[in-house]
Design a protein around this nucleic acid. Structure first.
Lengths: 212, 212
DNA sequence: TAGATTGTTAATCGATTAACAATC
DNA sequence: TAGATTGTTAATCGATTAACAATC
């Protein structure tokens, strides 16, 4: 279907386009020219057009892009209509926060269940999401097709758990631990390393170190 | 002090070098050649040397780098020794999770306080961090030099709060909301957009779309 | 010394920006 | 039609990789 490989840089920009298109829709802006999008995002119009044209000509020469159509196209590209399913491994503070505050459905992902070992948690329900016994993970995955597992458990368990998940057919791991998960064949790993982000901020705060 | 501008790409790789050097130290590996680091990280030795040489010659020809010395140098570059201070704005689920589970001190940052509006929370202490009344934010900042504010509050309050913080001298904002904060002069904004990350994972899961 | 690995320059590769013909 | 803006090619810029002399 696709003519060439899309670079990671482009992919990482797509959700941001989404965000701005949604903002424009909320403002009632029905036309989105590359120039207008670029101005709002602080990038060049050229880049916007190049990025979008990786996926086909969504625009109309002389007019621009239709805001809601472009938004829908991006949603499709980002697989938001593919009904991916997810489970959370580890319903501690962070897992808890993700269940209650993060809108998986806004990304087109259905959060199906969470797993934990704490007896006080297992059997309860958070925002409609059942918390199941960690020991039942394999049997659950045998019955239910799950695309994404969210790792929000202690780092020491991350690698082991990733392996268990992969062998049960989970294809994507959203890793919130600070662990480096090695490559797992057939599994896409997306890391959210808080500390990497904070350290980058830390670095930029210590600038400017330019000569005086 | 610094000869030229370091590219963002390089900066974003530094925390990962850190992580691997710490792993090597934990394994008792005292010598870290660019080749060894590269192999562990799945990058080229050339890139490792180029990255490190942005900051000076830390290595010894014919030997390599001393693991712990290199780690210490990176820590310094990432401003981990500058005693940056941070506060958390919003002690809900996510703020809570950050206070209890994220080790600010591992990044060389001191988490000083959290702010919230919930009467049940204000006045309590979480993992030694006092939760203060949001209304006292300005007076607190007038008395205490704070470098970083963590935004873990409802998105609708993000922009407004960012402005308040900036006008009180906060120089860095670690934004966990899904909001697009515009540029604020003199303030570094580091975004942790969960949904951008999940959507990228979603995209890669829907691949391969190559022609058949 | 010989071997190894850095620091650094040169070559390649890829990503961004600019330009403009196509066309709505 | 005239004006505007895309889609796309070409030019530029920057980042990565390769090569190798310096040197421990």
């Amino acid at each position: 279907m696709m003519k060439f490989k899309i670079s990671n840089n482009v992919i990482r920009r797509l959700p941001r386009y989404m965000r701005h298109l949604n903002m424009m829709l909320a403002e009632g802006v029905n036309k989105a020219s590359s120039g207008e999008i670029a101005k709002r995002m602080g990038v060049t119009a050229s880049q916007v057009r190049q990025d979008l044209n990786c996926f086909g000509g969504f625009g109309q020469q002389g007019y621009g892009y239709n805001t809601s159509e472009l938004r829908d196209r991006l949603a499709e590209i980002l697989a938001m209509n593919e009904n991916h399913t997810a489970i959370i491994i580890g319903a501690g503070n962070l897992g808890h926060a993700l269940i209650e505050n993060f809108h998986f459905d806004d990304c087109g992902v259905a959060l199906t269940a969470a797993f934990d070992i704490a007896p006080g948690l297992v059997g309860t329900t958070l925002s409609g999401v059942p918390i199941l016994r960690a020991e039942t993970l394999e049997s659950f995955l045998a019955e239910t097709k799950i695309d994404i597992a969210v790792l929000s458990l202690p780092g020491k368990l991350a690698s082991l758990t990733a392996g268990r998940l992969a062998s049960c057919g989970v294809r994507g791991i959203w890793n919130f631990t600070n662990e480096e998960l090695g490559e797992i064949p057939g599994v896409i790993i997306e890391n959210v390393h808080f500390s990497d982000s904070l350290l980058a901020l830390n670095y930029y705060l210590s600038e400017p170190r330019e000569e005086t």
